[in-house]
Write a protein that binds this DNA or RNA. Structure first.
Lengths: 335, 335
DNA sequence: CACCCCATTGATATCGTTGTCAAAGAACAT
DNA sequence: ATGTTCTTTGACAACGATATCAATGGGGTG
């Protein structure tokens, strides 16, 4: 039924092995032979049988995405990016949900990789920030690529974003709008992005000669509820800030809810900013000023550098930092 | 390195083929032999090599999820459900984004299935509502399971939800809250759920002896923007309803935005209801009254019935209708 | 011209499973 | 006791690719 290498080899009048060489891009194949074989491949519509390749070559052609992140829209974007990157390469993706708090995690993942013969992992926050977890993968010689790691060893495969700079410029933007009393809601403490964003905020405040009011700095965990709770706390105090920068959009939405319940008008009485540009950022009113990261592109690149390494093309596709984009919307008012 | 059938066969002192029979649950294996083999399998931690199985048996052990639905949270839930169902079975999932409007769709999907040797498809709305598309799969003898199909042939594999009944009871609930002037935003016309929900609304209105005001019935397409636009239109007219039922939460959120921009207070001056219980439903204020469908469970079941068919267990796992749950939140006010 | 080297190619074994088919033994009917 | 059928088991081929290693031949060197 299906076209096999054998059919191609007959059509091109070469040996099976030569066809194999061509489709695997091996060296030492004469250019004329290559052209001939590729013509036959195209003519017959040949697609190598993944199972046979995998069985013989011991590669599974499967990547796994490791995540423990309740943000569905982030997950969807990451997946979408990886799938697109895989599409043309013959690799497949499986998704593996994790529990970063589990003490069996390290063992479980090693077992998972061995059981399913996964070729490589793509690791997302907060797992990407757990040094011992990554070290364990190294120890077991498991290949992986990291999205937004806390430390970026030059030899590791990773993609990162400029969280610090983005938080710095968003904060500067808020200041430019005339705000001097600004609150901040920190993200999940296990995510390195939380610290980068906070540091960006702090430095922007200081470099503008302003001071931080500790009462307006609250610990959140990226969830809507944590933002809501932080808002309730802040609005309970006698003096409230004129603007609040939340480390992500969900928390900003939470604050907005608590503000609206308190009768505070956004942005007239309180300006708000988030981070991520999740769908919710423009599905509430007023729409959130935020920072958009190219999550899909980052994820795609994370997959690409991993695959490039497998295919021996590591030189062409390297770790990279992506730039975020500031999006100013209605929730930020000029004082 | 890895444990193979051969190792197990030696340990259990039977032939390779007998081990194969046991792990595939084939008939005609003596009970004592079976026990013996399973003990060895467990002892050695044997896991069959998927590639070898696949190569020999011509099955890929891969399912594909077909979707063309911009709702990320819905997609995430569907995926999550399917992955969970696959986990214990040895099947894998690949995700395939489609364009339901493409005239090459039918051909593309057939090619996709053949190229990747996909064992079966899981089809989501709106593809699940395209009769000719499904018919084409039948013609090519491609196995599939449908989520929320418009017509439910008894012999087809599908899972459905009680959209009509849920819309009927949500509408009744709104009426019970004292509303007599109720608007409705229809969903995407290609989704059968849109019509089911609308019919449920219409019948509830009529059975309560009330009348429909055509000016308050607007066509949407499930997007936030279509809800927003519908809201703008409705609020532009001289008389506005006391409540609006949108066919999903995104559109309800869109209406809420347009209401708030118009200065209308929800729920004091306008009650709102959505459908789906997406994250946004409780991330805006006031939180939306809505209907929660067990999307994850439905998707898991869709995968299960498909896999059951492959494994010859079709009798045990059948097509099924799932019940939705009414969730009343702040956006619905008693008049 | 003889020699060696390297680029190119192919014959054959092999990956780990399942399919095919036949054999052995148990159970049952005649 | 004999033939027939059914259950249980195993030997061996096969799936479709890649790995290994040897063969071929053109080009360079002394």
């Amino acid at each position: 039924m299906a076209v096999t290498i054998k059919d191609v080899s007959k059509d091109a009048a070469v040996s099976i092995k030569t066809v194999s060489r061509v489709i695997n891009n091996e060296a030492n194949v004469a250019e004329t032979t290559k052209v001939k074989v590729l013509a036959s491949v195209k003519k017959l519509g040949f697609k190598p049988n993944k199972s046979a390749q995998s069985l013989r070559s011991k590669k599974s052609y499967m990547l796994a995405l490791l995540y423990d992140n309740p943000n569905k829209s982030y997950l969807a974007d990451v997946q979408s990016g990886i799938f697109n990157a895989c599409k043309s390469t013959g690799y497949n993706l499986v998704i593996q949900e994790c529990d970063y708090k589990s003490n069996k995690l390290k063992k479980d993942i090693v077992k998972f990789v061995e059981d399913f013969r996964i070729d490589g992992l793509i690791v997302t926050p907060p797992l990407s920030d757990m040094e011992d977890f990554l070290q364990n993968l190294d120890n077991h010689e498991i290949e992986y690529s990291v999205i937004a790691p806390s430390t970026r060893k030059p030899e590791s495969l990773h993609v990162s974003s400029n969280d610090y700079e983005a938080a710095y410029s968003l904060t500067s933007e808020i200041i430019k709008h005339g705000h001097e009393e600004i609150g901040f809601i920190k993200g999940h403490p296990k995510h390195s992005a939380s610290h980068l964003r906070f540091n960006g905020f702090v430095d922007a405040i200081k470099n503008n000669g302003m001071r931080i009011n500790e009462h307006w700095i609250k610990q959140g965990n990226f969830s809507f509820k944590s933002g809501f709770d932080a808002g309730v706390e802040i609005f309970h105090s006698e003096k409230i800030p004129t603007a609040i920068f939340a480390s992500n959009d969900s928390m900003a939405a939470g604050i907005m809810k608590s503000a609206q319940m308190k009768g505070l008008k956004v942005p007239h009485e309180l300006s708000l900013a988030g981070f991520d540009d999740s769908p919710i950022a423009h599905q509430i009113w007023p729409a959130l000023t935020t920072v958009k990261q190219p999550v899909e592109k980052m994820a795609a690149h994370a997959a690409k550098i991993l695959i490039a390494k497998f295919d021996g093309l590591a030189e062409q596709t390297k770790s990279k930092e992506f730039k975020s984009e500031l999006i100013v919307r209605e929730s930020l008012k000029t004082l």
